[in-house]
Design a binder for these strands. Structure first.
Lengths: 121, 121
DNA sequence: CCCTAGGGATAGGGTTCG
DNA sequence: TCGAACCCTATCCCTAGG
């Protein structure tokens, strides 16, 4: 196994971000073929770009973290949810009231030239 | 309180091992859906199988309880920038250094039928 | 056939509990 | 303190649709 998992480097993320700004989100193959970024992203496939962008977008949305202060931690183990319950009655109250601190990204994570996508699939 | 942690039984371990022999390591979902093992492993998730296999593998790898180098694990967050140079001279040539000297087990711990990892990413 | 979007599975690090 | 069991999620895989 040469590369079990290729972690994205900061350079690659920057190149992807720049590529999206230049060509637009969704134009993965175009970004990949741009000689400006191909030198950095040549290890990645168009699908990789898509996946990474999805992940970055999710992170930007809500950090939804679990790193709470030691206070107000009601994260205790519950009863066994093993036992194969057909009903997902698993109501885990996360109740995050944390203030989502914006990372102050100089680049908006979803520029998207023109999302002609009106109909939600 | 109930069962915070479900210890693996010998039956489950045997089923897991058999499943890996039959379907290959990494095919956790496939093993789980195999009716041959689902009767034993139905309490486990595919992630559980993966985790357990990891533990078993670690055990098999030569575990010296001896006083070895305990230099520890000063693992600071060091951004492993295995950055690729503009010259594609580096092709991730990771030779297998694993001298898998499995002798104590009749079952190889990594059979892996066929990693379809052929296409360069 | 190639590409993209999306869902789902896997790998590996981190955390918790005994 | 350490390890087994469990959690989190970035990355990878598979497939439908265009």
């Amino acid at each position: 196994m040469g590369a079990p998992k290729q972690k994205w480097t900061a350079d690659e993320e920057a190149a992807l971000k720049a590529g999206v700004i230049k060509h637009g989100a969704g134009k993965w193959r175009t970004i990949l073929k741009d000689p400006e970024y191909s030198s950095v992203l040549y290890l990645r496939s168009n699908v990789d770009l898509k996946d990474k962008w999805r992940n970055m977008s999710v992170m930007a949305n809500g950090w939804s973290s679990r790193e709470k202060s030691k206070f107000a931690v009601k994260r205790m183990h519950h009863v066994s949810k093993r036992e194969e319950s057909p009903l997902p009655a698993d109501n885990d109250v996360k109740s995050d009231e944390d203030a989502v601190d914006i990372k102050a990204h100089e680049v908006p994570l979803m520029p998207i030239p023109a999302p002609i996508r009106s109909t939600i699939r």
